[in-house]
Design a protein around this nucleic acid. Structure first.
Length: 287
DNA sequence: CCCACGACCTGTGGGC
DNA sequence: TGCCCACAGGTCGTGG
């Protein structure tokens, strides 16, 4: 589920409950998520203080005062729920996207701030690992990862290099985390529509103007989605249970059969399958 | 190297 | 109402 804007929203929600806090109790309710949790997971975390909380692509990174970093990926249905001391649990205060269900409460962190963070993940495509902080960037998990789409390394010149000689469409390339880190199915569809670029055009045939438009569109859609607290389709919610609302701004994603929102376009949003994933686009204005 | 496809796992929504 | 299939925000491994 979560793409960059949702992961960033979760990171921001976790930050005040984790940064500077010590993990006083860690519980794992099963030995694995997508992969086995690392050897000694509970012992290596218990008593550690979180010194910083950052994001790289769709990963949340909790730096510890022990030369290790807790690396977390939410997969499709991963979700954190915060129970903080003093936070009201008055029903209706938040619009809950889904009730927390104990069956999928896989990992729990309790902090010296009196709060608890529970990781839920029905499909278990998410995972956690402990990686030495010093070698994090060169760890196999991150070494081949592309630039941050909201960072300086992602611009038209970079995209020109990434698209050069590729027969694949921009849809599948932009989903590739080694090309750019953090985009997923929703925001790639939305960015291509904004830039009016066809998901089917061989990437090598996309000209400089369209590449520049793509860079602008990707940045804009991500920034707007972050400002909206992400998109809630079914599982995703902020750590306090509130829903994102960027889904109301989708122009094509999930809108098969509806009119293209672009003025005077007249096209109809179409769904097709690329690399096993649904692609939503307007065949009239996306060229 | 490039690319397509199935696998992983569980839940849900739509059609019949 | 109930059953069955298609599909879901993401990677990863395999094989052509």
């Amino acid at each position: 589920m979560p793409e960059l804007p949702e992961v960033e929203t979760v990171r921001r929600g976790l930050a005040p409950h984790l940064i500077g806090r010590r993990l006083v109790r860690v519980a794992m309710n099963r030995p694995d998520l997508r992969f086995p949790l690392p050897e000694g997971f509970v012992q290596r975390l218990t008593g550690a203080r979180v010194t910083g909380l950052t994001r790289r692509g769709k990963y949340i990174l909790a730096a510890l005062d022990r030369d290790e970093t807790l690396v977390m990926h939410l997969g499709m249905t991963g979700r954190f729920v915060v129970e903080a001391e003093g936070v009201s649990d008055t029903p209706g205060e938040f619009a809950l996207a889904a009730p927390a269900d104990p069956k999928h409460a896989h990992v729990i962190f309790e902090t010296d701030g009196g709060g608890a963070l529970t990781y839920f993940d029905a499909r278990r495509f998410g995972f956690m690992d402990l990686i030495e902080t010093a070698g994090l960037e060169s760890h196999p998990r991150f070494a081949a990862m592309g630039p941050e789409p909201l960072g300086d390394g992602f611009d038209a010149a970079y995209l020109a290099r990434a698209f050069a000689g590729r027969r694949q469409g921009p849809k599948t390339l932009l989903l590739d985390q080694s090309v750019v880190a953090g985009l997923g199915n929703i925001y790639v569809c939305e960015a291509l529509h904004r830039a009016r670029v066809s998901p089917l055009r061989p990437a090598a045939n996309i000209g400089p103007r369209a590449r520049a438009a793509l860079v602008r569109s990707i940045r804009a859609v991500l920034e707007e989605a972050i400002a909206a607290g992400g998109s809630t389709l079914r599982d995703y919610a902020s750590v306090e249970g509130s829903m994102g609302y960027f889904q109301h701004d989708f122009q094509v994603y999930g809108r098969e059969g509806q009119a293209c929102p672009n003025a005077r376009c007249g096209g109809v949003v179409t769904r097709l399958v690329q690399a096993g994933r649904s692609t939503f686009h307007c065949p009239v204005c996306q060229r």
